[in-house]
Design a protein around this nucleic acid. Structure first.
Lengths: 137, 137
DNA sequence: TGAGAAAGATTACAAATGTAAACCAAAAAG
DNA sequence: CTTTTTGGTTTACATTTGTAATCTTTCTCA
């Protein structure tokens, strides 16, 4: 598995664009990010380069404006990030955080249904460690 | 509001301990982290110092082994982090990610119930933007 | 009270990151 | 075909981060 943790915060921004578009040319990435941030084109180019070096991005170099494609999926990346955040979090807080997250997220009705489904499944096996236990290795 | 984003990954580890304990002496932090990581005591001291400088930690200096207290709550920090991650994520993916998160988390039965409650509330107002809309500023 | 241990402060330094200009090669335009 | 523009590569440099040793001030215990 790839080390998502080694992706820096600005690199993450670049990946976001490419994930959403599926693949993209540097121009596309630059156009989007110049609107959203005040980075110069050169900066974004650097970021793309680093992402390639770190093997998060791959360029199809057969035709000229290269087309960059992600080598990690957004799902995988989000998964790693969130889990890293939630790991070692006592379950009371997890519950709270998930609720908070849901309250702040737009989700579709069908997804809501699926999540409730998953929760009902969970209910069967729910059990909880105490606060301090979460600090142990 | 504080800029949680400026907390580095190792600093986050330190905060974790202090959040969980409520407050802590450097020794407590060091003891925990020396078990969990291979950082030297000096390293952890540096991290504590930086957290103070960044105003995430405050030391009660009235008595001698200082007692360090968080100046941001764990809930707030988690909230900022997760939301930052989920922001600009199209809602299909949010749904998926939340489900994934739930599947990988231990949560208590009562929290599960509360989350389901929150979801039912959400259901009423569910509506969704498309993928590309998430890239706009 | 004096010596050693513990805690806190200062200094150090390499690697990663943020930020970008400069340079070079390929494509588009005239 | 030359010129211009665009995309890609290299180089640059300050700041932050990871990692820690050392120095200094307090405690503590003999």
């Amino acid at each position: 598995m790839k080390e998502i943790e080694s992706m820096s915060r600005s690199e993450w921004q670049v990946m976001r664009i490419i994930w959403t578009l599926g693949q993209a040319t540097s121009k596309q990435v630059i156009d989007f990010l110049e609107k959203k941030t005040d980075w110069k084109a050169a900066t974004i180019k650097t970021l793309i380069g680093r992402l390639q070096k770190k093997n998060f991005l791959q360029a199809d170099e057969t035709k000229r404006p290269y087309i960059y494609q992600p080598l990690v999926s957004e799902d995988e990346a989000i998964h790693d990030n969130v889990n890293d955040l939630f790991d070692n979090l006592c379950c009371m807080r997890k519950g709270y955080a998930i609720k908070d997250l849901i309250n702040n997220s737009e989700i579709s009705k069908s997804d809501i249904a699926e999540i409730i489904e998953a929760l009902n499944e969970k209910k069967k096996s729910a059990n909880c460690k105490n606060k301090l236990a979460t600090l142990e290795k």
